[in-house]
Amino acid sequence: MEMDKLGVITTFIHNIVVYNIPLLYGTVGEIVVEKSGSLNLGVEGIMAVGAIFGYIVGCYTNSMLVGILTAFAMGALMGLLFAALTVSLQANQNITGLTLTTFGLGMYFFVGNAIKAVRWPIMSDYSSIKNGFADIAIPGLSQIPVVGKGLFSHNILVYLGIVIALCMWYYLNRTTPGLRLRAVGENPGSADSVGINVKRTKYLHICLGCGIMGIGGYYMGLNMSGSFSSACWINGYGWIAVALVIFANWNPIMAILGTFVFGFFNTLRVSGSSLAVAFPETLGWLAAVPTQLYQALPFIITAIVLVVTSVRKREGSGLPAALGLNYFREER
């Protein structure tokens, strides 16, 4: 009985990670994009496009790597579209991002339904994908009781997501290109005046960030075992990612933490009842909490964070000063 209860906790922790790392991809990608001064509201659509193409191509080539690369490339292509419109053509970022979401979701269903009409690839038919997505236990760490299996035995994309987040933190804060990127997001005029190529920097990082989002989408598709239905695989995660960027204060490491916080609520929604059953005395009340509260919490928390940071003004805030503003050098 005791073992079962601990098992519930382990599963709970495991689920926090498994189901929410896609959020981390979306968030880290969006941080990279926003650090260049571009507010991209198209995360949902970009992840959807990465997901559908990554999944289909990955399955047909029976290669997880090809799937990841395809998802990245499709995400980056969407980023390229966003960059062309907002950086070169000076279009409004909000509207372009929203349209990218509509467009991306449209493409997701269009391509998905078209493939489904011919032959839908079923994930379990493709050994490399199925095996590639299996959990890999980290020797040693995964032996720790209760949390070991929960935290240190996961599929490759979980590890990749964490690695990307750490790399991006290092890149943004500890490298010269990262410094230049932040300069562009803070004050493109001064970046320009010291010879930083503002356009190139923006293009590059919008594409990079959107590519990362694309991988997150691919992960979501695999997580749903590739079963294609009327609901999109991304299911609002793109929007939570936009919120999480604010919660994480534009810091990829904080994004890992934020993913766990948001993921905690998200997992309570799914497995709160099993916790309530396992610990009826202490956690029995969980069964009474409406699931929608868990779903709304990320947005409520982020709204509070938004208000608090605006009251406290900019001290310590990671919000890029030029976020959402297009740069035109000859503006007087």
């Binding site: 507010l39 919120a243 929608q292 947005f299 709204a303 208000v307 009251v311």
Partner: peptide, 19 residues
Amino acid sequence: FGTNETLMTLMLNYVALYV
């Protein structure tokens, strides 16, 4: 407070949806 209205209205969309 100068709170960013784009992000704020965005968050409130989902709060309303889950209500």
